[in-house]
Amino acid sequence: MVGYAMRRILGLVAVWFIAVLLTFIAVQFVPGDPILALLSDRSGDPVLEARLRAEYGLDRALWVQFLDYLGNIANGTFGLSFRFAGTPVIDVIAGGLTISPVLALVSIAIAVPLGVSLGVFVAIRQNTWADTLVILILVAGISVPNFAMAAFLVYLFSIKLGLVPVAGWGGADQLILPVTILVIPPTAYIARLTRTYMLEVLQQDYIRTARAKGVRERLVIYRHALRNTLVPLLTTIGIIFGGLLSGTFVVETIFNIPGLGRMAIESIFARDYPVTMSIVLLFTVFYSLINLIIDLLYAALDPRIRLDAGES
C-alpha cells in the first residue's frame, strides 16, 4: 500500500511538471499580444512597447522564459500579471484561491448523499411510475445547461420572489443559488449511477441468499446492497469533481463570484497569460490531488486494484 502510494505521488509530480510545460507551450500560441493589450490605444508608442516587453522578460529566448516561469512558481509569485501591470500573479488570484475549490467541495458534499438517496429511492421502485418520473427529472437535470438553469433560478428566486441575492460573494445566502446550480448535475449523475449499480447488486447471489434466509428487506438494502454500490461509485467522484471545477467557470461568471474560474475567463479575454496559466495549473494540481486521494481510498477498500495500477 505504501509503495503504491509513493509510486502514485511520484507519478503525480511528473504529470505536474508536464502540465507546467504544456500550459507554457499552449500560452505561446494564444493569439494577441499581451503587451499590446496592456498598451491598448497607445500601442503606437514603440519605445513604451519595447520597455514593457523587456520588463516582462518577453524579449528573451523561450527557454529562458520557461526557466523564469519555473522559478516564479518555485518562489510562489507565479510571475507578473499583464493586466495589472507590475503585480505578482499570486496577489491577483489570492482573493479567489479558495473560492472555487470550496464551491466544488460544498457541492460534492451535498450531491453525494442526495444523489445516493435518490438513486436508492428509485432502484427499489424499479419500473413504477415514480421510477420513470424521477429518471426523467434526473435526465433533465443533467441535460439543462447550467447557464440556462442559472438564468431561470435567478429570475424566479431573486427577482420575482426576492428570496436570495442576485449575485455576489461573502454571505451564506449568496451561496444558495450558485451551489444549487452546481449540485444539480452531479446529483442527477450520481443518482442514475446508484440506481444502475444498485439494480446490478440486487441481482447478485449473496443478496438472493440473504433474502432467502429471511433477512429484513431494509437491512438487505442498506447493509449489503448499498455498501457494495458505494465502492464503484467512489471511482466516479473524480470525474464529477472535474465537472464541478469546470462548472465554477460558468457559475462564478454568472453570479459574479470572485473565484478562480471567473478570473480564468477574464484573464483569457484580457490576454493575461500568467494568470490563465497559473489558474489552470492550480486547478490541475487540485484535481489530481483529489483523484489521488480517491484512488488511494479505493485501493484501500479493494486490494485487487493495486495489481493493476494506472488502470481504474
Partner: peptide
Amino acid sequence: AFPELIFAILI
C-alpha cells in the same frame, strides 16, 4: 490530469 472542460477552454 486536467479537468476536461478547463483543458478544452485552455486549448
